[in-house]
Simulated scan of single mutants.
Amino acid sequence: MAERTRTIAVVTAGLSQPSLTRMLADRLAQATSARLAEKGIPTEVKIFELRDVALDVMNNMLTGFPSPKLDAVIEAVTGADGLIAVTPIFTTSASGLFKSFFDVIDNRSLTDMPTVIAATAGTARHSLALDYAIRPMFTYLHAVVATTAVFAAAEDWGSGADTVKTLPDRIDRAAGELAALIAASDRSDSVRDPFTIDASFSPTGGFQPSI
């Protein structure tokens, strides 16, 4: 029996166009698709640049309701078989846009989601932000986060890249871990309409402003 197609959602919070954040996201998606192909599993990659829904995210935070455009993005991301989440690092943490997007989705909608986290920054001194700021957020959301997180500083893209574990090496390792998690996951088969679980629950109503 042929393997069903797995969907990989890629969320990237780069602000410029083109951006190194998007480049890292693309490479992770390509490597993960290649690893799944080795297992005979076809994939469909859906890439979402948060800069395209920035105003929608802010309006959702102010009103508690997503626009149809943002609602479609949230539905695609939360309904995927795997997630690649990539952010630039600003002031030692994820970008505000990246954090705000995950604030407006329901905090149960990523439960058991196979996930790889990644980040970009100008210098390697920001690399720990992945583990002290970004990984805890996805743990709180009950995602299954791959052990390897990928950080890319500006020098990782040039001739001065780390010769011990190069960026392509780190991407390949993270992709292998995510591919294994996706292949073993039955999350999509077990996802139910949230309204049959709790009539008050909405997959796009995670952020309810009270102040």
Rank of each mutant, 00 (worst) to 15 (best):
T120Q: 01
V86R: 05
R135H: 11
S19L: 01
T12C: 15
G122N: 07
G14C: 07
S93P: 08
D81N: 11
I47G: 00
F98I: 12
M137G: 00
Y140C: 07
L128S: 02
A124Y: 14
V116E: 07
L28F: 13
L62D: 06
T78M: 03
A80Q: 02
D56W: 01
A29Q: 05
R4L: 02
K46N: 09
M23A: 15
I47L: 13
K39G: 01
S93K: 05
A146C: 13
V57A: 08
F65W: 08
V57D: 10
A31Q: 08
V144Q: 05
F65V: 14
T92V: 09
R6L: 09
I84L: 14
S95C: 10
G14Y: 06
T147P: 04
V145Y: 12
Q17I: 07
R35P: 05
K39Y: 00
G82T: 13
R27P: 04
S109N: 06
I74V: 15
R51C: 09
D103H: 10
A133C: 07
H126P: 00
D106Q: 10
L141D: 09
I8H: 03
A13I: 03
V45H: 10
F101K: 08
H126Y: 01
T5S: 01
E38T: 04
V86N: 08
E75L: 01
G96N: 10
M137C: 04
P136I: 06
A121K: 00
T147Q: 13
G14M: 10
R108M: 11
F90Q: 06
L24D: 15
A37H: 01
S95H: 04
L28K: 05
M58L: 13
S127Y: 14
H142C: 11
V45T: 14
G122H: 14
V45Y: 11
G96C: 13
T123Y: 13
M61I: 12
V10N: 08
V10F: 12
F90L: 07
T43I: 08
S16W: 01
L50C: 04
L62V: 11
I134Q: 13
L36Q: 02
D56V: 03
N59M: 07
E38D: 14
N59L: 04
M23G: 11
K99G: 05
G64T: 04
A76F: 02
A143L: 04
K69F: 13
K69G: 08
A37W: 00
L28C: 07
R22Q: 15
M58K: 11
T21N: 11
I41D: 01
F48P: 03
F138Q: 04
T123R: 00
L83A: 09
A54R: 11
E75S: 06
I47C: 10
T92Q: 12
F101S: 09
D112N: 14
A72G: 05
A85R: 13
I74D: 04
P136L: 11
G64F: 10
T147I: 06
V11P: 05
V53P: 09
D26P: 07
Q17P: 02
D71I: 03
M61D: 08
E49I: 07
A129E: 05
R6P: 01
H126A: 02
